[in-house]
Simulated assay, not measured.
Amino acid sequence: MKKLLLILVALVLVSCKSSYLSSKKSAVLLDINQEKDDNTFVNLKNYSRDFVFDMKYATADNFLKEQVYPCDECFLRVKTIKALLQANQAFIEKGYRIKLYDCYRPLAIQKKMWKIVPNPTYVANPKKGSIHNKGGAVDITLVDSLGVELNMGTGFDFFGPEAGHNYTDLSAEILANRQLLKSIMLQYNFKSFDSEWWHYNLNNSATDEVSNLKWRCED
């Protein structure tokens, strides 16, 4: 009986441990191509120093006006990071870098967002989930060599027609910036979201499972 109890305790501990993603950073950059499972969730910060991070939902600087992430990490599935690294390299060769606003979002956070703003125009209903909950979506913009954001016409999470890819009553500079972002992202296996210039989904990621893996923050 005692042995059985010890086994059960061990299983519970393993289960608890495996339900969290570690935010601990590797001392050296890792090679994403060495990852064998394309569906594993990993931290983008362990594979590149060439991105800029402005994780809006780890702050109150978002349309919810509330912090819903415990800290500003960017977890994604391995296959998403592989494509994102290639896209960012293409931007770097043109003098730009990707700035990230949002990455993987646990289902529990989706539910919290829905509770704050229960409107499918602004937040995906957690009953269905979003590609963010599957680790296949990123919200991004571009910065130049000085770290200045390119003018995209609206801010992140602006919910109006001006944020859409099909809205053309914008300056030539804005249209060119959006086209630059979109053309390279599409080239590297992403697809755009019509109403949000910042949102890109990895192709075929809609068939992946919704996840509720959360992350522990570094001390």
Rank of each mutant, 00 (worst) to 15 (best):
Y104N: 00
P120Y: 04
T121D: 15
P118Y: 08
I92K: 15
F91L: 09
N119Q: 14
Q89F: 00
F91H: 12
Q89M: 06
Q110T: 09
K112N: 14
N88Q: 13
E93Y: 05
N88A: 02
L84E: 05
L85Q: 06
E73R: 10
Q89V: 01
E93A: 07
D102W: 03
Q89Y: 04
Y96T: 06
E73Q: 15
K115G: 09
F91C: 05
E93H: 12
I81R: 01
Q110P: 06
P106A: 06
I92N: 12
R105Y: 06
L85F: 02
D72P: 14
Y96L: 10
P120G: 08
L76G: 00
I116F: 15
L76S: 02
A90P: 07
C103V: 01
N125P: 08
A90H: 09
N88W: 03
V123C: 11
L100H: 04
R105K: 14
V117N: 11
Y122T: 10
R105G: 07
A108G: 12
Y96G: 02
A87Y: 03
K112C: 08
K111Y: 12
I109P: 02
K82M: 03
W114F: 10
G95S: 11
K115C: 05
I109C: 06
Q86P: 11
Y101H: 12
M113L: 09
L100Q: 10
F75C: 01
Y104L: 06
P118T: 10
